[in-house]
Computed example of a mutant assay.
Amino acid sequence: MIDWLTIRRGDAPLIVSVPHAGTDIPADVEAALVSPWIGRQDADWYVDRLYDFAGDLGATMVATPISRSVVDVNRDPSGASLYPGQATTELCPTTNFDGEPLWRQAPDDAEIARRVNAYFRPYHAALENEIARLQALHPAIVLYEAHSIRSVVPRLFEGELPQFNIGTNSGRSCAPSLTAAVVAACSTHPGESRGPESGAPTPGPRLSRGHVVLNGRFKGGWTTRHYGRPEDGVHAIQMELAMRGYLDEPDTFTPETWPVRYDESRAAPMRETLARVLRACIAFAKEQA
């Protein structure tokens, strides 16, 4: 057992992978950063807490506390871009989401290989072990990649990101019926609707059209693409949440304003929606029997 890796086992046909909520940076690596804050700025803040109910549903959770700035376990280990021609971050990121440099001196090939061996490979060995364990119990399983990101990141996408961004590698990583079930579970989330004239948010019982997006800017990272083999009974799907759905994003992101504290009452409606999503994943997998 690796002491830094979180593995909470359940027997339901669902694995929740949380690759980017971690903020731990080894001291020798942190010393090379431009600043400790910029090295943690792009974490998927509180996603592990947002989904901490998953075990109550019988799901397995695999999560790393290691910051994505050290090594991104959701990138192709070969270094190939997931989104050719579009701005993105690398296996060992050299910039943050805004394009600002992370390092006083970027890691060289030897340092990248060390980080891959130390953190990337153990994370995926854990996923592979849990996939094999659950496949021995169920004819089909779902690997659910849990992510979030700031709602506005001009370098990565235009305007405000839709609330729920579902990625299935353009339909290749899971069955269409799983996609439909997840979309349906998101569509009743109590949230904002848009005023028809001003475009300003107004209270509404349902999300407006466009707030649930399939294979838009985020089609699924390396984990979704690598493990999604519906023909073999492994259905992988990624959920990228815009953070405004569960926390109050500030107008400007500085060490004084970011991150904000986790607020259980603020996050409660999102947790209810995500519980529906995970229950839909489990129900789909059980129906495959």
Rank of each mutant, 00 (worst) to 15 (best):
S148L: 10
E264Q: 12
L134H: 06
T60P: 11
G195L: 10
E90I: 02
S81P: 13
A54K: 02
W258Q: 04
L82P: 09
A146Q: 00
T224Y: 01
L14N: 02
R244W: 11
P162T: 08
A267H: 04
V62N: 00
P201E: 04
A275Q: 15
Y51T: 09
Y144I: 04
G216Y: 03
W4S: 03
Y83I: 10
F284A: 10
T188G: 13
I282N: 01
Y246R: 02
V34C: 09
V213A: 12
T254D: 09
A280H: 05
H235T: 13
W37A: 07
N165I: 03
A242Y: 01
T254Q: 09
G10F: 06
P13T: 13
S193G: 15
A12Q: 08
A175H: 14
A32H: 14
G228V: 01
W45D: 03
D108T: 07
A268D: 13
T6Y: 05
R8V: 14
L127W: 00
F157Q: 12
E264H: 09
F218H: 12
A184P: 03
H211F: 01
R155L: 14
V260Q: 02
N165P: 03
G220N: 00
D3G: 05
A12M: 11
T252I: 12
G167F: 08
R40V: 04
T23Q: 12
A140G: 00
A87E: 08
D24L: 08
E287N: 13
Q41M: 14
T89W: 07
Y51C: 05
H235R: 04
P196N: 10
A110H: 08
V277I: 15
R194Q: 12
G195C: 14
E272T: 15
H226G: 01
R209Q: 11
V18D: 03
A181R: 03
S187K: 04
L274M: 14
G22E: 00
T188K: 08
N74Q: 07
D108R: 04
N215A: 06
E256R: 07
D72N: 15
R172Y: 06
R75P: 13
E128A: 15
S193N: 11
P26E: 11
E272P: 00
T95Q: 06
F253L: 13
A285R: 04
